[in-house]
């Protein structure tokens, strides 16, 4: 097995998420984000001026990066090849650590206190995003726009898979590599 950083995805999972299969991912995420903005506008109000900034989110264990502009109904997510993305703020870290920030599994202050995630650029924009996410208590179903039983089911199964992967890769709930 090749050497990999703690917290990064195992090779077989990386293979499943090769860039060619994920080309429409940007579109899917754009629609998911816009749907969320329609259902929960307060989440995006919290971002204030930072809603129009571009956030480059680079999973260190993937071949591509996300560029997100969380501007409510005009929100947009693009996928670009890693190292080619430009934006106002860069966040670099293992995908599962980044996901942990999204669902609140990890204390957001881990952003600054540990080295699993590297931040550069507009620190204020990232702080706004992390505070908005922190308040949002997002579940996978919120992003997928699923309600009722389908939502509950999606939450349970997705969180279980993510949790298992996080444990497998050695990430602890405070976002620190163990």
């Amino acid at each position: 097995m090749t050497e990999r950083e703690k917290g990064e995805l195992p090779g077989f999972v990386r293979a499943l998420t090769a860039p060619s299969r994920l080309l429409p991912l940007g579109l899917v995420l754009t629609l998911a984000l816009r749907g969320l903005a329609k259902r929960r506008p307060a989440l995006f109000d919290r971002l204030g001026e930072h809603a129009r900034r571009s956030f480059v989110i680079e999973p260190s264990d993937m071949a591509f990066a996300f560029v997100m502009v969380p501007d409510g109904a005009h929100a947009e997510v693009r996928t670009v090849a890693r190292g080619r993305a430009a934006g106002d703020v860069h966040v670099l870290g293992p995908l599962l650590a980044l996901l942990g920030l999204l669902d609140g599994t990890f204390d957001g202050d881990a952003l600054f206190f540990n080295r699993a995630i590297t931040v550069s650029g507009r620190t204020d924009a990232l702080l706004a995003l992390r505070n908005a996410i922190e308040d949002a208590e997002l579940r996978p179903s919120d992003l997928l726009g699923l309600e009722g039983r389908a939502g509950t089911l999606a939450d349970a199964s997705i969180l279980r898979v993510v949790g298992t992967l996080q444990r497998l890769t050695g990430l602890q709930p405070d976002g620190m590599p163990s």
């Binding site: 992390r130 505070n131 922190e134």
Partner: peptide
């Protein structure tokens, strides 16, 4: 007064 923090009147 940090970005993304605190309450609106309604909240």
């Amino acid at each position: 007064n940090f970005p993304g923090l605190n309450f609106s009147a309604e909240e």
